[in-house]
């Protein structure tokens, strides 16, 4: 069973207090974000059950909400998730080319994870970054004005970083 640290439990209480008495269900999205970040980048059934217990909800209430929102991963992902916008305005300025380039470079299709578990590639909808397209969301950041060179150095950098952590 996953469990938050005392500091995070405190944070959970703080979040719940943003909403009126008895309306703690409102805290569900912020707490699911916290849980996903804390427990491996996805929401396992155990994680969702734990969140339900924190908010006094029945598990099904959490499942039905979590599955509605695309930011919540219902299956494990790679260590780094490239979420590339493929909506109209990005498409006008080359997002499909960037997606194919990454697919070839990593040897996976959008929606898949590399065998070493490092990279997942996902197509996502408009990220409110159409003026700096093509663009990807990577963790808590956006990488904008994507080019093939930028992708090369980014992948290089992330591989080195991952090696560094492993050592």
């Amino acid at each position: 069973m996953p469990k938050f640290s005392l500091a995070l439990l405190d944070k959970v209480q703080q979040i719940i207090r943003r909403y009126p008495e008895g309306k703690q269900k409102s805290a569900l999205l912020p707490i699911l974000h916290l849980a996903q970040q804390e427990f491996g980048g996805w929401l396992s059934p155990e994680t969702m059950d734990y969140v339900a217990s924190l908010l006094g909800l029945v598990p099904i209430e959490v499942y039905e909400v979590a599955t509605f929102y695309t930011m919540f991963n219902m299956t494990p992902t790679g260590k780094f998730v490239f979420q590339i916008c493929h909506t109209g305005p990005c498409c006008l300025v080359g997002s499909e080319k960037i997606i194919s380039y990454i697919e070839t470079k990593l040897g996976i299709k959008a929606g898949e994870t590399t065998p070493d578990g490092l990279f997942t590639l996902k197509r996502v909808e408009c990220l409110a970054s159409c003026g700096t397209a093509p663009v990807m969301q990577l963790g808590k950041k956006y990488v904008e004005h994507l080019t093939e060179e930028k992708i090369d150095s980014l992948i290089e950098e992330l591989r080195t970083h991952a090696d560094f952590i492993r050592k």
């Binding site: 269900k25 409102s26 999205l29 929102y69 996502v124």
Partner: peptide, 19 residues
């Protein structure tokens, strides 16, 4: 929010805010 265009519609947004 958590990634859903429809939550920009005001009544969907309120539902979402209610968890």
């Amino acid at each position: 929010g958590a990634g859903a265009y429809i939550c920009g519609e005001e009544s969907a947004l309120l539902e979402s805010l209610e968890g």
